[in-house]
Amino acid sequence: MRTVERFPNLATAIVLAALVVLPLTVPATLASQIAIFATGALSVALLLGAVGLLSFGQGLYLGVGAYVCGILLRDAGLGLIPALLMAALSGTVLAGLLGSVIVRRHGVYFVMLTLAFAQMGYFAVLAFKNVTGGENGLSGLPRQFDLLGFSIADPLSMYGFMAGAFFLVFLLIQRVIASPFGSVLAAIRENEPRCEALGYPVARYKTAAVALAGGIAGLAGGLHVIFLGFVPPSDIELEMSQRLLVIALIGGIGSPGGALMGSAFYTIVSEALSEIWPRWMALIALLLIGLVLFLPGGLWGARRRISALFARNTAHD
């Protein structure tokens, strides 16, 4: 049994420091992408870490958030914050609906259903071309935003906004994990039948966690659209779900701090390698195999394992 850490803790400080340092080390547009995909990966990390649910379908909610945000910005003339809130809300509602069906199935069934529903979202986008723009996506969105009098137009202010959004979600997840609700989720992860026997409405708790994760992914989709200025259909493709999962795994299974680390790693590596060798995903695949076999805690967990190794060595001396 893992002890529940209080928050804000060391991880909060590290993440905050990393967000400040990030735009100094990489270009601001790249830093924005890192923050956006880290937000999306937080939804995977929440499910996997807090409840132990492996989702291959978080890209669905990211994509839905992206389309909702794009359509509201363009056609309904909504402002930045209302559009983002609606993106998060749409992700929450859809994930809540699908979740109430999916959580009834356990283990591999759950995983398969998340993937199947993610595919469904992609084909829905193709089926309703007049709303979604089909394979062309949606363009013609506003490129300039105001937030409390500050203009968000240049790369650095854009990064500030994305990093702020990521940090808020990060704090929210830390708060949720440390809450009584989070303790129940952890109990479900450790021993679901026992929770059921204790009288907890397990399905309802799991649905709530899935809905929350869907909302976070939806928000990330909205952020991505704000950043890009259009809605790419790739946001709702299966590849997006896989990307979020890979980022969360590289960072460390289920650790919220790892999402930022994984996203930074993935985004920087893809940026650096895609020019030299377009098939760099093969390397990611090899890395993933290595992680599963040798480093189950991911990069974030490596820190703990290395310190554990040192501790063991000193104990032997």
Partner: peptide, 21 residues
């Protein structure tokens, strides 16, 4: 069982990339 899912997923990615290559 997540480990088997993830490793077969990685293998799938690898096969797809090799095919494209």
């Amino acid at each position: 069982h997540e480990a088997q899912i993830l490793i077969t997923f990685a293998v799938a990615l690898l096969i797809q990339e090799v095919v494209i290559l």
